[in-house]
Design a protein around this nucleic acid. Structure first.
Lengths: 211, 211
DNA sequence: GTCTATAAATAGATAGAC
DNA sequence: GTCTATCTATTTATAGAC
């Protein structure tokens, strides 16, 4: 067996030019595959074929690596939500509702949503790039919520919280097996979340004592 | 109950007559205090002042202890939801909406909601008492949902899923710090969840193309 | 910058004494 | 039924070699 350093990426020295970004990418993949509980520095290192000590040259501790992953997640999620709004057409209500479906799809596929991006554990780091990415994400949603309500801007934050709770609830329950053994595919749940968001907005525009 | 024949309940032999139920009770408290991630057989044993081996005389493994805790949680949660519905008065919509608030309060206080009760990890055990408790919980909610919709029973499951996703979303986001540093108390979030559930029901009763 | 080796926690689980 | 002692596995993190 000819073992040059380039022979196998899982053995010997790791000659990557940019281990830092490889750690973030692989960490993100691990999150998507195994969930936040299984995320560990050691496992990320193993999947990259480097020693478990190597990541500590690039991140001081587990939380800082996770923060870099969360930042990446926030940026990709914002892009997905923006894309979903564009695909939904010109109707502001549809554009807003569509982000619920995009959230369900993104978190199902990538394992990182609001609870990772805004986790207390990471907020304590005061990571500037994570804070910025999180703020941009919320601003995007707040703008869409504002356009979706014709009732004045004071209703947007409440609608947005309801909308986020709804979308996150669907995907959290799904991840933990609540919806399991039925026809609840991710696509189905995403559609349900969109429909629920439409229903919320319709209910908000309806007088208190019936139509 | 406070004084054992020995001087301290945390040292020496543990003379409890019913360690099994003490493990369930303390396990539930640990869940409420530290969350599902921190739940461990060893920690439950430590808090009871018994050796880490003792629990294994009563439960074959961690999952079976957790299942017993989840069963207890399902029963207490069902009782809380029923109580909330009663307190809400005679209006079916209010009775249904009130369960969203009760769910937020219960899970915030006790640490165990749908994701613990219906966790995939525990479903695999095929524990009969857990399955029964879970089914009773869902039946209760389904009945309330059915009474709340005047649109025929085929709408109840969808409404119930939306309602559950909403309530669970609020409490999951809260637990993970999303709502943290504002005036978002548990009571406030519970009220928000109730209001959102009302809005859902109002939206469901509203024609598709505006009032 | 990466490696080997190691330390200190913590967990799940088992064997055998009492 | 509970204890002491132990094994195995895993993690975070550091020290020092190369």
């Amino acid at each position: 067996m000819t073992s040059t350093p380039q022979d196998s990426p899982r053995r010997g020295r790791y000659h990557h030019g940019d281990l830092r970004s490889a750690l973030v990418r692989t960490g993100f993949d691990l999150l998507a595959k195994s969930g936040p509980a299984a995320f560990s520095v050691a496992q990320v290192a193993r999947e990259l074929g480097v020693s478990t000590a190597a990541p500590y040259r690039h991140f001081p501790d587990r939380a800082h690596l996770l923060a870099a992953v969360a930042t990446q997640a926030a940026e990709e999620l914002a892009a997905e939500l923006e894309r979903a709004a564009e695909l939904a057409g010109p109707d502001p209500a549809e554009r807003f509702a569509a982000t619920a479906g995009a959230y369900v799809r993104f978190v199902s596929a990538r394992g990182a949503g609001f609870t990772v991006i805004f986790a207390t554990e990471l907020q304590a780091l005061h990571d500037q790039t994570l804070a910025t990415a999180g703020r941009r994400l919320m601003d995007l949603l707040l703008d869409l919520a504002h356009e979706a309500t014709g009732l004045g801007p004071e209703h947007s934050p409440r609608l947005l919280e309801q909308h986020i709770a709804l979308a996150h609830g669907y995907v959290a329950l799904h991840a933990d097996g609540f919806f399991s053994r039925r026809q609840h595919t991710v696509e189905h749940l995403a559609d349900q979340a969109v429909e629920a968001s439409r229903t919320l907005l319709r209910g908000l525009a309806t007088p208190r004592h019936g139509p």
